[in-house]
Design a protein around this nucleic acid. Structure first.
Lengths: 214, 214
DNA sequence: AGATGTGAAATTCTTCACAGCG
DNA sequence: CGCTGTGAAGAATTTCACATCT
């Protein structure tokens, strides 16, 4: 498989969500132009992105919302071929459990060290002791993990995750983690996000309004 | 002021955080090469980014950690010239209040409709009824807001924020909001983030490991 | 007519590479 | 010498524009 640009994948994920919303709102067809408007990108960009999943549209009718959604879903299908674990069931961790519970729970296991939480089920997700990580990761075929522990613990958790065979990490701790290059890492540093918004909000150096992170 | 690229600002925010960490770890000087390693970018990129805040380094000694941190801080200083509001004190909102409470609380007001929460102080931040938004925004000179309400309410909140004079919005609701072009908007869609990590984790289409969102 | 799919141009972002300094 | 600051080259990404289809 060719190298798909990171940005393209992010936009495809976005289109997927928009198409789902449109679909459940009963819309049947859509033109690149409209999808572009919803996603805050250009129509040419939409069509270019859609090239990677093979053509789908008809000049007369545009794209079939449901068919396109399914195509993108298939392309990204991997998302459902793996379990996803959450590490850290503090404030943020619990919020993530709640956030990702609808429409289908996305986490299949949560980990913490606090014995208060072990074996409890929060927002539909069972909580295990971090020592069980390797066993559960194996058992549930987990390839992706989200880190929601304090910055001071994040590197140790990352190391454990890598050791347990995790292939992708979404990190919310405000540190730059070191992981082997075959593990995909993305860090969402909300301090950075907030600083950036504040900067562009106030300075007149409008960074030509990019509307999507990632 | 020239147009500073969005990415550059994001990296400057990141350098700032790293320099703060280094500084409190007692480090005095640093070379672009090292800062690059910590931020997962190249040394040339670091130097290029630092150009926008004016030169600072000495070939012999590298950069003075504390001076550089202060320079970046000044450049981004706007971050502290404004109040920041949180709208939506649900699971995610409360997690954000906790997350942004250290070292200095960053939110100066929270808003919700739930009368249970009004006038209570959570994680050091007072909660107001959404109807008070215009008054409090004016009173506290708030220019930036974070949206942490359900997707279905996010557009209405965005409209109210814009009307109240907000200049920048960080949106956590999984919808693409429509705001006037003079308002800076950034959306962090955690579903998209997770989909993307899952995609690159499993497909062999390694998107040449970008290590930072934003 | 008006939309798609796509080479090719334009733009933006990153890296190279080297002059100049301490 | 090795590092900074930076012009210039190189990559990557986005946009243009048009041939093609309905």
């Amino acid at each position: 498989m060719k190298n798909i640009p990171d940005r393209t994948v992010a936009r495809l994920c976005l289109y997927k969500r928009i198409l789902r919303d449109l679909s459940s709102a009963g819309k049947q067809r859509i033109f690149s132009h409209d999808l572009a408007k919803f996603s805050h990108v250009t129509a040419a960009q939409v069509r270019r992105d859609l090239m990677v999943i093979g053509n789908m549209g008809s000049p007369a009718l545009g794209y079939q919302v449901e068919a396109l959604r399914r195509s993108i879903d298939d392309f990204l299908a991997v998302s459902r071929e793996t379990g996803i674990a959450l590490v850290g069931v503090g404030n943020l961790g619990r919020a993530l459990l709640a956030y990702f519970k609808e429409p289908v729970p996305r986490f299949c296991a949560a980990f913490d060290i606090d014995s208060e939480k072990i074996e409890r089920v929060l927002h539909g997700c069972r909580c295990y002791h971090i020592e069980s990580l390797p066993a559960i990761v194996q058992e549930k075929n987990i390839k992706v993990a989200v880190i929601a522990v304090p910055a001071s613990d994040a590197q140790e958790i990352a190391d454990r995750l890598v050791l347990a065979g995790i292939r992708g990490i979404l990190n919310f701790a405000p540190v730059q983690l070191r992981v082997p290059s075959n593990v995909y890492l993305e860090t969402i540093d909300m301090n950075v996000a907030l600083d950036k918004v504040a900067f562009f909000a106030i300075s007149e150096a409008r960074g030509e309004t990019r509307r999507n992170a990632l």
